Simulated assay, not measured.
Amino acid sequence: MSVPPKILILTGSYGNGHLEVTRSLITELNKRGISNIVTSDLFYEAHPILTNVTRKLYIKSFTKGQNIYGFLYYKSDFRLTDFRIDRMIDRYGYMRISQLMKENDFDLVINTFPMQALPIYKQHTKSTKPVIPFINVLTDFCLHTRWISDSIDYFFVACNSLKEELIDTGINENKITVSGIPIKEEFYSYDKFSMSEDITSNQTKRLLISAGAHGVLKDLAQIIEKLKVKEDLHITVVCGSNQLLFNELMKAYQNDVTISILGYVSNMANLMNQSDIMVTKAGGISLSEALAIRIPLVLAPAVPGQEKDNARFFEKEGMAILTKSEEEIVPAILILLKQPLLARSLTKQMENHFYPHASGLIVDRVLALIENPRVHKEPSHDSKEIKN
Rank of each mutant, 00 (worst) to 15 (best):
E385H: 08
I335D: 10
A368N: 15
H376K: 12
P340K: 01
R374K: 11
V366Y: 00
M350K: 04
Q339S: 09
D382A: 09
R374V: 08
P331V: 12
A358F: 04
R374H: 12
P379Y: 08
F354C: 05
L342G: 01
S383H: 12
E351L: 06
L361W: 09
L341W: 08
A368L: 11
L369C: 05
E378Q: 09
A343T: 12
L346D: 00
L367A: 01
S359G: 05
L367C: 02
S345R: 04
V363S: 00
D364S: 12
Q339K: 12
H353W: 04
N372W: 07
H353G: 03
D364N: 09
V330F: 08
V375H: 13
G360V: 15
K384Y: 11
H376S: 10
A368R: 10
L367H: 01
Q349W: 07
R344K: 15
V330D: 05
L342W: 00
H357A: 12
P331T: 15
N352S: 09
R344D: 04
R344G: 05
E378D: 11
L336T: 01
F354P: 10
I362Y: 02
L367Q: 02
G360Y: 04
R344C: 08
Q339R: 11
L336I: 03
K348E: 15
D382P: 11
L346F: 07
V363G: 00
V330A: 11
N352A: 07
A358L: 03
P340F: 01
A343S: 06
H376I: 09
A368P: 06
S383F: 08
L341P: 15
E351I: 14
R374D: 11
V366P: 00
P331R: 12
L367W: 00
K384G: 02
Q339T: 15
V366S: 00
A368C: 12
A332E: 05
R365F: 03
P340H: 03
P373Q: 06
P340D: 02
A358K: 02
R374N: 14
L334C: 14
H381M: 10
Y355L: 06
V363W: 03
V330Y: 14
R344A: 07
L342K: 05
G360S: 09
I335F: 11
N372H: 12
R365D: 09
L337G: 02
E371T: 14
I335S: 07
A332N: 05
L369V: 05
H376Q: 14
E351V: 11
T347S: 06
S345N: 06
S359H: 04
A368Y: 11
P373S: 08
K348Q: 09
K377V: 13
K338Q: 14
S359C: 06
P373K: 07
Q349M: 10
K377S: 15
H381P: 15
S345F: 10
V366L: 01
E371K: 14
R344F: 00
L334I: 14
T347I: 13
R365Y: 03
A343N: 08
V366W: 01
S345C: 06
S380R: 13
P340R: 01
I335M: 07
H381F: 06
S383D: 09
A343W: 04
E385R: 10
V363Q: 02
G360H: 08
E351K: 03
S359Y: 02
I362V: 07
P340G: 03
